[in-house]
Design a protein around this nucleic acid. Structure first.
Lengths: 151, 151
DNA sequence: CCCTTTGGTCAAGTAGCTTGACCTAATGTC
DNA sequence: GACATTAGGTCAAGCTACTTGACCAAAGGG
């Protein structure tokens, strides 16, 4: 195998992982700065999943790539902090529908603003024109599988 | 704030985090396929740090963004599995120099090959010409801070 | 020479997951 | 419509990769 090709792959992989780490840090920091403390990136992924129309604990578990017990525990925590509410499920008496409260939506907006801020700073560094391309390239790679990283 | 700009930022952030998660999974899977089991991505970052000329536990801790106790524990584990060796430090009697063994170097090569493989698959999807640009863009963003993600 | 800093270890605690057992409601299958 | 299987959720216990805190010994600066 060609060593130089190897090195390119390694460089890309490291850059990708490290830049994702920076992004997560910046979003987290931005969310804290907007007044929402005690939340981890996993919560953000949960918010994003629940935002459109709510969802079940099991659905959330699949989306995050964790067990349903872990997802339930995460929902307990968010419920205790007032970000989500558990209600009856309209079509399934076993299930409970987890929905964002107004506080949850406010927090989601804060996370979006923080993400936009971080992306904006990046855009300044590499140029706005490349950001669209970058996003499309990354989206190609992101397809399939749960959102939450395994590390 | 312009909502569409917000959405762009969110899209980029999600694509970045999700694609990094895919990358980590693929590398991990490739390393396992090459016969090295029981290793997590954090170990890979440790290997990369130690590969050039070894290093101290404290240095590793700073590189990974964890406490030195956590780094020491990680080194214990790698030592028990035969991937690293602790020796005396040439210039500092307090410190111990942690170096890769031959098994450790073999594992590092496997991880590099796995990363190259994953990057190669990606390169096929988006085109080889864009990969270089992508890498440079990501590297700009990755600057500063420890390598290991916080999530 | 101290005095502070730095590399490392020991001990204990914790957060965020896991596996396993179980209950109840929905969904076939006949 | 009875029955078996599947699926959503909870309770309980355990584990692992971290953490904080206290401490020791060597290095290094004034």
């Amino acid at each position: 195998m060609d060593p130089s090709t190897n090195e390119d792959g390694v460089g890309l992989a490291f850059a990708l992982l490290a830049s994702a780490a920076r992004m997560a840090e910046r979003i987290d920091e931005g969310v804290v700065r907007r007044g929402f403390t005690g939340l981890r990136p996993t919560h953000g992924f949960a918010f994003a999943f629940l935002a459109p129309a709510g969802g079940t604990v099991t659905g959330l578990a699949a989306h995050l790539g964790v067990t349903k017990q872990a997802a339930a525990q995460l929902v307990d925590e968010l419920e205790a902090k007032g970000y989500v509410r558990r209600g009856p499920h309209p079509h399934d008496a076993r299930a409970r529908l987890v929905e964002l409260t107004e506080a949850g939506r406010a927090c989601t907006r804060a996370a979006e603003a923080a993400a936009a801020e971080a992306a904006g700073a990046w855009s300044e560094a590499i140029g706005a024109d490349r950001m669209g391309q970058l996003r499309r390239d990354l989206e190609r790679m992101a397809e399939g599988g749960p959102i939450r990283p395994t590390w």
